[in-house]
């Protein structure tokens, strides 16, 4: 019995050791960049070169910035330009750089009960969905996509109350699936749409509006506000992601021949 007990204790002590992670950089990012597989495409090379793991915490842009405001991550990759500027101006972030762009699109059920198919004007599409009271599934999580959607609604001046307006409170993929199940309309970034296209019954309704532009930025959490953040590592990651090599990798990350993101850091990509 004594021997068994000692063995058990030894085993339990061994567990915490295997939990040690080594050198780590924490990146909070939007659900879309992670779920489309882009980060898996560009991060391993950085991890090898710098002998450090990047721990990706995949949440909405709003939550990513909130986590960074608490000092719980070292760097963020987000898409919510106005909120990013506020984040930097308030002293939480430094050295924001453009990374890449794509665009948002509006999807809807094939029979298109609100009659928005083929529109270019996103606001007009929202007006029609509103007047026909058709299901619209919103992220509802203060993510970059949700912020964009709220901006669009504000521009239309319409109130979003009623059974037709559903707030999912979940990531992009989950919201997309919910819209699919409910035969609703949904605002989604093109990369996530293309990644899930074959599993969806929804089809592309609205694209091409200048209002639907979707830029991504990377920001280091300020070492002046939080002395403990791994600022040098964060800057190394920013340098890698905006480098011509990585920008080319972003450009070449395609799904069935379609690019998901267009690199936009100065000096890299197109």
């Amino acid at each position: 019995m004594q021997v068994k007990l000692r063995l058990l204790c030894g085993l339990l002590l061994a567990i915490p050791m295997t939990l040690w992670a080594g050198d780590v950089l924490r990146l909070a990012t939007t659900t879309s960049t992670y779920e489309t597989g882009l980060l898996d495409h560009i991060l391993p090379e950085f991890e090898r070169a710098h002998d450090c793991k990047v721990h990706v915490i995949s949440v909405g842009s709003g939550k990513a910035m909130q986590i960074a405001r608490n000092g719980d991550v070292d760097v963020i990759l987000v898409h919510a330009r106005k909120a990013e500027d506020a984040f930097v101006n308030e002293g939480y972030g430094v050295n924001r750089r453009d990374v890449m762009v794509n665009d948002f699109v509006i999807l809807g059920p094939v029979n298109d009960p609100a009659g928005v198919g083929g529109l270019r004007d996103a606001k007009e599409a929202l007006r029609r969905i509103h007047s026909k009271q058709r299901p619209f599934v919103s992220r509802g999580d203060d993510s970059g996509t949700h912020k964009k959607e709220k901006q669009l609604w504000t521009k239309t001046g319409l109130k979003r109350d009623g059974d037709w307006y559903l707030e999912a409170g979940q990531g992009m993929s989950a919201t997309l699936r919910m819209a699919d199940e409910k035969n609703g309309y949904v605002l989604v970034d093109r990369a996530t749409y293309l990644t899930h296209r074959e599993k969806l019954r929804l089809t592309l309704m609205v694209e091409g509006d200048a209002d639907l532009f979707n830029p991504y930025g990377i920001i280091a959490v300020s070492p002046y506000t939080f002395a403990h953040v791994k600022y040098r590592r964060a800057m190394a990651l920013i340098a890698w992601i905006t480098s011509p090599e990585c920008q080319a990798r972003i450009r070449d990350y395609t799904l069935k021949g379609r690019p998901l993101y267009h690199p936009s850091a100065a000096g890299g990509g197109d």
């Binding site: 779920e35 990706v56 899930h196």
Partner: peptide, 22 residues
Amino acid sequence: GGNIRGYTRNITTAIALETSKG
């Protein structure tokens, strides 16, 4: 845990993520 792959992702958080991805 934050559902970090290979580090804090466990069975249940992985199921939640994979289901959301379909």
